[in-house]
Structure formats: structure tokens, C-alpha cells
Computed example of a mutant assay.
Amino acid sequence: MSMVGEFRQFIARGNVLDLAVAVVIGAAFGKIVTALVDGIIMPVVGLAMGGVDFSQLYVALDGNEYASLAAAQEAAAPVVTYGAFIQTIVDFLLVAFVIFLVVRAYNRLQKQEDEAPKPPAEDILLLREIRDQLKAR
């Protein structure tokens, strides 16, 4: 089989399409979570911590003090933006928690399907029918 034929067979399996859809949805979901964290959660956390804006937290490595992160970046100072790192950690934790909830719900549904009683085998049904006929006599 040629390489092109193998590639067609690989694409036609369906798993590749499912994976592509999952990646696109995951990327969109990541944007939603980022907007949630940046626009809602971190401002509330910052307000609770005395009005701290986490996106503006930084350390200038050149030893100078700057009025803001933008001023330090404009001066081309090397900075460690640990506030952005904190926001990224919160993003990750939220995404991981939501994925955990989805997988947990899926596993519970699968478990319920597995635990559903199976209909009795034909020989059992036949034996029950014979029993019921013998009782009727």
C-alpha cells in the first residue's frame, strides 16, 4: 500500500476527526476560561487582597524601580512578570477542574450503563415459563 493510501486510511478512521474537533473545542474553551480568569476571577481576588492587579505584578531585574510594568517594558528593562504566571496557574486549575467534572460525569454515565440489568438468557426465560405452567396446574 502506498503512503498516500495509508494516509487516506488513517484519516478515514474517524478518530482523527474526533481529535481535531476536540482540539478546536479545547482551544475555544481555553479562551473562555482565560476571559473568565482575567475579567472576573482575578479582579475579585485582587480586590479581596487590597486592590492588587495581578497582571501588573513584576520584578525588574536591573534593580531600578519603575512606575508600572508598561514603563519597565518601555525602558527595555528585564522583568519577571510573576503576576501573569499566577493568572496562568489559575487558568490551568480551572480548566483541569472542569475537565475533571466532565470526565467524572462521563464515567458515572458509563457506570450506570454497565450496571443496567441485562435481560435474562433464553434458557432462563424458558425455565421460568415452564415453572409458571407447572404452578398453574
Rank of each mutant, 00 (worst) to 15 (best):
S2C: 02
E6A: 13
F7S: 09
Q9F: 08
Q9M: 10
F10C: 07
I11Q: 04
V16P: 00
D18G: 15
D18W: 11
L19A: 10
L19H: 10
A20M: 13
V21P: 00
I25V: 15
G30V: 05
G30Y: 04
G30Q: 05
K31E: 07
T34N: 13
A35W: 02
L36T: 03
L36Q: 02
L36P: 00
V37T: 04
I41A: 07
M42E: 00
V44S: 14
A48H: 01
M49F: 13
M49C: 10
M49E: 06
G51H: 02
G51C: 03
D53Q: 15
Q56W: 02
V59N: 09
A60H: 03
A60I: 05
G63K: 05
A67D: 10
A67R: 03
A67K: 10
A72M: 00
E74V: 11
E74Q: 15
A76W: 01
P78S: 05
V79R: 01
T81Y: 01
T81E: 10
A84E: 04
F85K: 07
I86E: 04
T88H: 05
V98Q: 09
F100N: 06
V102Y: 10
V103M: 15
N107R: 12
L109K: 09
Q110I: 14
Q112M: 06
D114M: 09
D114K: 14
E115D: 12
A116Y: 07
P117G: 10
P119W: 06
P119H: 14
P120I: 09
D123I: 12
I124F: 07
L125H: 03
L125W: 08
L126I: 02
L126A: 12
L126C: 01
L127E: 14
L127F: 15
L127W: 07
E129G: 03
I130C: 06
R131S: 09
R131P: 01
A136W: 02
R137S: 14
